[in-house]
Design a protein around this nucleic acid. Structure first.
Length: 936
DNA sequence: AAATTCACG
DNA sequence: GACGTACGTGAATTTC
């Protein structure tokens, strides 16, 4: 033992509970490999201790140190107030078993570890701090807990280890507006929602500090409460005196905790390397064990390596040769090609991949085709490679050596590709099928590893070849960049030297086949065969046909609008600069934020995480509403700018010169819920909500003698919600064809239907949508721009009136937590891997899990309609062109409009059947016109 | 490449 | 103890 504690000594007191919680929330839920014990918080805790110890050198190093923990949940404060900390959530299940381990960790670092039954850590810290101070020593409390700030002063400081910021007397005044000795008085008034300390209702820290500074102390304030001018505040202080005084006793720390140890026991000790490393090894912290053993100059104990995980748990490993690009074959003559075709027919399946000179399926020209029949056996048949790939600036259009003629290859392959008895396997079949179709080659039947993965793993990960190969084959494919380069100097695939192309291209076919071998049997095991066979596979040719058809877009109309928008923008820009007093880039949120909140010093400037002011539409609207002209003009400018750049300008570039039409591409495996996505260009977000924007739809026109037809599902998601959650009132309303939002308003707000106002209906509509999105008080409040409490009241009343909705939400959450996925009415599984995470990520996952079955079921229904549509309209001069989530757009000869509507509507309204019989009617509205604006 | 904003259902 | 929030998308633009 060293000398007694006294002058010159420096005591560090670490708030152990704060360390634990911070560690727990900062790290993903790690488990110990050998037995699955959760150890994430312990790991973080050790890292924090290690960092703390490392930082302790130099003149300011502590002479004494202890980590202080809470022990027991019942303390003297619970006797004072039975609601003390009553709103605390239960400790998470996976944290509880880690608590004793953090004590062990502390001892392993050879740091004093102190706790006393029935006392909070804060009281022990207070007691030690006071003792140390009284004996002339310095104290640093390592915590950012504001409850400890009352201890600061006279050589006692706090240190926020996270921000590495010391908090002294000045810091406390900054935080509380009063010096440390009056912090308790302020806290007594302000209360604390975290610890459930009531305080004085309606008084926060700011007001409390004001009052205490004015009256000098809490006692004085309460005694002279009559003198307060504000009537409400005066009354509160008089009425709630008892509650405020009790709050004070709750927040005041007890510096007389009976200790069973002394300050001398806390003397800093060097860690015992053997003991520390043994603990770390036992926890199986590899990195930390290594780092600390290096630091201490000791050999690291052996931590057992975990067994490598099987690529797919539950899967039998497939015996396959390694992926070796040098083994692939370059097919350069007819004999070789015929041998491959013979092999394909014998096996009855082949993985196919086409290489082209463009990613645009409507323009791409074939460079070559690759085939694979068995893992490790693949070939590349080049047909369009040009000479002069490198060195020659312009290349040359001369065909390179060693290629069969394109026509000969296609003629030879055509029968196999159309052969019912030969399955053609692709990764993203739609792309290859569209390219081949342009060469007059039909491909059927097909399988698609991307869609297999989508049916199996939606929500778990992406479904691109690279992702799948790395995840399921533990192999990183040759990056296409190594062949094509990137940026300006990038070349197209038809200019890649053939010997290199063989390795890359054939590898893709090899990988596709290997993925197929794994995924195919998994469909049954995971019970998603029906999803794949009825919702995915048959949709491929339907989408391919829609994309190839394209929609006619009138360039003149767009061009005229572009010019009008440009003029309007210029006018607005001049006005904006005038109002700002100087010129700046209106398109730059950063510059705009500085103008608004720094130069013009408008209220409400909030900075985002990057430090820039937020200038979103909601912010600007609030400013405009209080009479500021500049933000109002910027909103106008932004609207016009968006319409011009994204729509009238960009859309013109997408008009295919050969067809005069715009050919979007649908991403079938993009959205986790089963929805499609539309890209290049996105035709699912063409403006409609604003009058000005809607006019862009006038540019989407029908060919001569034809009209555009739009059929859309009415309120499909709410109908599905009513069915799934089993809400009789809602179901009846839909059956009776009532206004569903007005009905909701009537039920929730108690307003009779004949007294309904548009405003009340609007609020009910927002709640209805909110429910579909996994409602929260915060979200609804923001949407309706009402106080959060009011929004919460709405929600509560809604749940009271429709208890089935809450039951649905609870059940869905529980299902997701148990199974890791949710499921649509048609069996589509949407995985929710983050549902058991913690913090904001879990909240996201929760809301997504609520929404997914509803959005996903709607997506399934329209998919079923689309798949049946070609046959239903087969005899009609009608083409299905576009899908916008709940809407299908057709182009049809003028004289067959009614017949088409009848046929298409029947398919859409009956799309759920026979698999699912909904308790609510499905209603489809129809519109027609020369352009999309008229048809919608 | 990331962040911000905004268009749609 | 502290934090961030309606669900699902794609594209243009600015900024780093």
């Amino acid at each position: 033992m060293g000398e007694g504690f006294g002058k010159g000594c420096h005591l560090h007191l670490i708030d152990g509970s704060a360390f634990i919680f911070r560690a727990y929330h900062a790290l993903p839920p790690l488990t110990r490999k050998s037995d699955g014990m959760p150890v994430g918080a312990v790991s973080g805790f050790c890292n924090m201790l290690q960092r703390y110890v490392d930082g302790n050198n130099g003149p300011d190093a502590p002479t004494h140190v202890a980590v202080i923990f809470d022990k027991g949940s019942h303390t003297f404060r619970n006797v004072l107030y039975d609601q003390y900390k009553a709103n605390r959530e239960e400790m998470p299940e996976d944290l509880r078993p880690q608590i004793p381990l953090t004590r062990e960790a502390t001892r392993a670092f050879n740091i004093a570890c102190e706790e006393i039954e029935g006392f909070e850590a804060d009281d022990i810290i207070a007691t030690l701090a006071v003792q140390a101070r009284d004996r002339g020593g310095r104290v640093t409390i390592i915590s950012s807990d504001k409850d400890l700030m009352q201890l600061v002063g006279d050589g006692v400081e706090m240190l926020d280890a996270m921000k590495n910021r010391r908090i002294d007397r000045e810091g406390v005044i900054e935080k509380f507006g009063v010096p440390p000795e009056k912090v308790v008085d302020v806290q007594a008034l302000a209360g604390d929602s975290v610890d459930n300390i009531p305080g004085a209702p309606g008084i926060g820290i700011k007001t409390a500090a004001l009052l205490i500074n004015e009256f000098g102390s809490l006692e004085e304030l309460l005694d002279r409460a009559e003198e307060i001018k504000q009537p409400k505040r005066r009354q509160t202080l008089i009425d709630k005196r008892e509650q405020i005084e009790m709050s004070r006793s709750l927040v005041e720390l007890d510096a007389d905790t009976p200790l069973d140890f002394t300050l001398e026991d806390l003397e800093v000790r060097d860690p015992d390397p053997e003991k520390l490393l043994e603990f770390l090894a036992q926890m199986e912290f590899r990195t930390l064990t290594k780092r600390i053993s290096e630091k201490l100059g000791v050999e690291a104990p052996v931590v057992p390596e975990p067994k490598p995980e099987a690529a797919n748990p539950g899967e039998v490993a497939v015996e396959e040769p390694p992926i070796d690009p040098d083994r692939y074959e370059w097919v350069r003559d007819r004999t070789a090609l015929d041998a491959w075709i013979e092999k394909i027919i014998a096996v009855g399946r082949v993985a196919v991949d086409t290489e082209t000179n463009s990613l645009n399926e409507m323009r791409a020209e074939l460079a070559g085709i690759c085939l694979s029949v068995e893992p490790g056996e693949a070939c590349y048949i080049p047909v369009g490679h040009k000479t002069g790939a490198s060195g020659d600036l312009f290349g040359s259009d001369e065909l390179a050596e060693g290629q069969l003629p394109l026509d000969e290859v296609l003629d030879a392959l055509r029968p196999v590709l159309a052969d019912d008895a030969v399955l053609k396997i692709f990764q993203n079949a739609k792309y290859d099928c569209k390219v081949l179709a342009r060469y007059g080659v039909e491909v059927a039947p097909i399988d698609d590893t991307m869609l297999l993965s989508y049916a199996l793993h939606a929500g778990e990960h992406g479904h691109g070849m690279d992702t799948l190969s790395e995840r399921y084959l533990r192999h990183t494919p040759i990056p296409i960049k190594t062949l094509l380069g990137s940026g300006k100097s990038a070349i197209t695939f038809d200019r890649v030297p053939i010997d290199e192309a063989v390795k890359y291209a054939a590898e893709d076919a090899d990988i596709t086949l290997r993925l197929w071998l794994r995924f195919r049997p998994m469909l049954h095991q995971r019970k998603v065969t029906a999803v794949y066979e009825t919702l995915e596979r048959p949709l491929v040719p339907v989408l391919a046909a829609m994309e190839r058809a394209g929609v006619k877009v009138d360039r003149e109309t767009l061009s005229r609008m572009s010019h009008a928008f440009a003029q309007k923008m210029a006018g607005l820009e001049a006005e904006i600069h005038e109002l700002a007093g100087r010129s700046f880039n209106v398109g730059s949120p950063k510059q705009l934020g500085e103008i608004l909140f720094d130069e013009m010093s408008l209220e409400g400037g909030k900075r985002g995480k990057t430090g820039a002011y937020a200038t979103g539409a909601d912010v600007l609207e609030d400013l405009a509403a209080v009479g500021h002209d500049l933000p109002a003009r910027v909103l106008d400018w932004r609207q016009v700018s968006k319409l011009k750049s994204t729509y009238t300008d960009a859309l013109q570039d997408h008009i295919n010169p050969e067809t005069g039409r715009v050919h979007t591409s649908y991403v079938q495996a993009g959205a986790n819920t089963g929805r499609l996505a539309s890209t290049d260009p996105n035709l699912q977000n063409i403006p409609v909500r604003s009058e000005e924007g809607r006019r862009i739809r006038e540019a989407f026109v029908a060919d001569e003698g034809k009209v555009l037809l739009s059929l859309d599902y009415s309120q499909i998601e709410l109908r599905i919600l009513a069915h799934i959650a089993g809400i009789d009132t809602l179901k009846a309303a839909f059956r009776d064809g009532q206004d569903i939002h007005a009905m909701t308003a009537s039920e929730v707000f108690g307003v009779p239907m004949d007294a309904m106002t548009p405003e009340i209906r609007r609020q009910a509509k927002a709640i209805n949508f909110g429910v579909i999105y996994g409602i929260s008080g915060f979200g609804l409040a923001r949407n309706l721009r009402i106080p959060r409490g009011e929004a919460q009241d709405f929600i509560n009343r809604y749940f009271e009136r429709f208890p089935g909705i809450r039951a649905y939400m609870d059940d869905t959450k529980a299902f997701a937590k148990e199974h890791g996925h949710v499921v649509t009415l048609f069996g589509r599984k949407i995985h929710t891997p983050e549902i058991n995470a913690r913090g904001p990520r879990a909240s996201f996952a929760y809301r997504a899990a609520i929404n997914a079955p509803i959005q996903g079921t709607a997506a399934d229904i329209i998919r079923r309609a689309m798949i049946r549509m070609p046959e239903a309209i087969a005899g009609l001069p009608a083409t299905m062109l576009l899908q916008v989530h709940d809407e299908l757009i057709f182009e049809v000869a003028q004289d067959k409009v009614d017949e088409t509507i009848n046929a298409a509507r029947a398919v859409m309204e009956g799309a759920a059947e026979p698999l699912v019989k909904l308790d609510v009617p499905i209603v489809v509205d129809a519109g027609q016109g020369a352009n999309w604006a008229e048809a919608h």
